[in-house]
Design a protein around this nucleic acid. Structure first.
Lengths: 224, 224
DNA sequence: CGCCGAGCTAAGCGCTTGCTTACACTGGTA
DNA sequence: TACCAGTGTAAGCAAGCGCTTAGCTCGGCG
């Protein structure tokens, strides 16, 4: 219990600002070693998966002894949980900000903005995104549910835009739920292969995928 | 060496026909325990990943002692390699057969056929597909390269159809390579979430995704 | 009958795993 | 001065890992 409290010493406000994405300036008063451990863990998990990575791997990369991990985190799962939680919070925020930025410009502009932003994000942060997207079953059931709730918010955001466009008559989407899933699949999967199969920048890829999303949603010739 | 030969006793012709997909009748003369091990390994790898699965897990599920695995396979990696190899061979064959089935009907029909077939495949065989798509870095470099070559053939098949359609003037695809990647991402990712986020049958999903693919490739109103 | 190879297991080897314990050092505060 | 919370390590425990060894059973064949 006392160990758990110590290990949780990084509270959410502190954990929120850590390096790759985990490198920005925001709320970053936690100990430097804790941040190095998070970065080390992201790299290791991305390369070999949660179960393929040992706590000694992570400690080595962070320049600590094996026991050093447990000064800052209660367990390997705790370390992984904090990464996935922060990663999902940031991804969701990225999507929300992108939609807000276009204001009341209409469903097409909103769809383009959110798909471009999320695709760019997955490409730019592909190391973190890989961890955050593909190893979730390694989380405890409670932690998994917490992260799944954030994922549902992202899904709901996209589905809402499609519904809005259909209602306004500017989209033709026979199956909104299925199309939402397809759009998110296209975006999510970028983290799996980027950058090995593409020489495009994250922004170029974002624009391309956003254009494809509009084609998927737009009214087209062959019906009526 | 003698053990390796014994363990390789399942040659490629034998390994080709085993249960889920690994249940069909084709060329199935290998020992029943070897097939049970493959099925057990697919289930275990799909649930917990390659590194999260122990050889004892697999042996238990197949009703064998831990040592029983090594009667039929040289190593855990060998078992995994055979699954990924057969899985990729079947996936590729599924795509090729789908394209052949529509004959000379033109690029749109071919694109629709291949995307529908592959999406349906990923949904129907989502357990195997999950193993085959998401744990490839666990393969040895040589085995990885062998499997990657099969993946490139699938990519080339789709890209070829897009190029064909552009040349024939029936598709408008500004970025063929990027669009190919997006299409395959959309299809591949089905294995990650199916069936938990959808109540649609594999065939319904295949039709939906194929329709979306045609929208992505078709000429549309807003240019010219 | 005797022999052989295929299939299988009990036991266990050497190593790695996640994590704990006991202890040391440091800088700040009383 | 004494103390203490925060940060770190050396050593090691119990359990689990991939895999091997030695030996068993059993059906088929001379």
């Amino acid at each position: 219990m006392s160990k758990a409290t110590t290990a949780s010493g990084l509270d959410e406000a502190q954990a929120r600002g850590l390096a790759e994405m985990w490198d920005d300036e925001e709320v970053q008063q936690g100990p430097a070693s804790a941040r190095r451990l998070l970065v080390a863990a992201v790299d290791a998990f991305a390369a070999r998966g949660y179960h393929g990575t040992s706590t000694r791997d992570i400690a080595d990369r962070a320049g600590l002894s094996p026991a050093g991990v447990y000064v800052h985190f209660a367990s390997k799962e705790d370390l992984f949980y904090r990464i996935t939680l922060v990663g999902h919070q940031r991804t969701l925020r990225n999507a929300v900000l992108a939609v807000q930025a276009v204001g009341e410009a209409g469903p097409a502009a909103r769809l383009h903005a959110v798909i471009a932003a999320q695709t760019t994000w997955q490409a730019r942060h592909h190391t973190t995104a890989r961890v955050v997207e593909y190893d979730l079953p390694a989380l405890s059931p409670e932690h998994y549910e917490e992260v799944a709730a954030l994922r549902r918010q992202i899904t709901a955001l996209v589905r809402g835009i499609l519904n809005e466009g259909v209602r306004a008559g500017v989209f033709d989407v026979p199956n909104v739920d299925g199309t939402t899933l397809a759009l998110l699949s296209m975006v999510t999967d970028v983290a799996r292969w980027y950058p090995s199969n593409s020489r495009q920048s994250p922004e170029e890829l974002g624009t391309l995928y956003a254009d494809l999303a509009l084609r998927m949603a737009a009214p087209h010739n062959s019906d009526s």
